[in-house]
């Protein structure tokens, strides 16, 4: 009979984690590349041409960080600091509440139903709030982008509820990353934390069924990249698995 398992500790950084880092860089690059465009769309004070049910771009441009000062170092461990810093630096501090925020925050609320400590809750609230801003950013400049498969101008409109679903998925992905760092730091014995992570993983399994159709509804390349790389699913890193490098011609 073979010997019992003797688990060896992992040492090398796994490839999927490197691809996650490469993807983070892509999103950060795109914000800086398109910041002027984003500001112009908001300043124009006209309804978004291709998103139904949102109204002015400003409705997608705000972020509300009630817990930003109290987030833990696990945000950095998870590689998520830029995901908070960019909205903190550029978001519109005044104006309407981001219309995608409720959908993103609902993810955090679902995960912590069994209770987690305040540090975990603050981290989850921060990343889920930021997720709404990131989806809003790329939605605002969506009409200037290209379709993810054809790379031709993307002309189809989308509904607000599609963006809300996207915000929930990006929030879920960021939440998973934060929870993993809290668990690695010794949180496995905490039932509420463990349960939050299990809920998040189960939610990512449920999301997988919907993902191909959602990506088609989003259509535009930058939104598709943002959402498709946010959570674990079978198509997450196909871009990098096929040999695409870090950058991409915009």
């Amino acid at each position: 009979m073979p010997a019992s398992p003797q688990l060896r500790p992992t040492s090398a950084v796994p490839l999927h984690r490197m691809w996650l880092t490469v993807g983070d860089g892509l999103q950060v690059q795109r914000v800086h590349l398109h910041l002027s465009e984003w500001r112009e769309a908001i300043a124009s004070n006209t309804p978004l041409p291709d998103v139904h049910g949102v109204g002015l771009a400003a409705a997608l441009a705000a972020v509300e960080f009630t817990h930003l000062a109290s987030v833990s170092s696990h945000i950095d461990d998870a590689g998520l600091r830029p995901w908070l810093d960019l909205p903190a630096r550029y978001a519109f501090p005044v104006g309407p509440t981001n219309v995608l925020r409720p959908a993103a925050m609902a993810r955090a609320d679902e995960l912590i139903m069994d209770g987690v400590d305040q540090v975990v809750a603050a981290d989850l609230a921060a990343v889920c709030g930021a997720a709404a801003w990131w989806v809003g950013f790329f939605a605002i400049i969506r009409h200037r982008g290209v379709h993810h498969r054809s790379l031709q101008p993307s002309t189809a409109s989308i509904a607000r509820m599609v963006l809300e679903e996207a915000a929930g998925i990006v929030a879920l992905g960021m939440a998973i990353r934060v929870l993993e760092e809290h668990l690695r730091a010794g949180g496995v014995a905490e039932a509420g934390l463990r349960m939050a992570y299990c809920r998040a993983l189960a939610a990512s399994v449920a999301v997988e069924r919907r993902m191909p159709a959602l990506l088609e509804e989003l259509g535009e390349l930058r939104l598709v990249d943002l959402v498709s790389m946010a959570v674990p699913w079978r198509g997450r890193f196909t871009k990098y698995a096929g040999g695409t490098g870090a950058g991409q011609v915009e």
């Binding site: 010794g186 496995v188 463990r194 299990c198 809920r199």
Partner: peptide, 24 residues
Amino acid sequence: SPGGVLDQVWQALIAHDLVPSLDP
């Protein structure tokens, strides 16, 4: 719930020493 089932499975793996320690 699906999350609750996964947690039971994870605890079974922990109980049988079948996952690596995460204790730094």
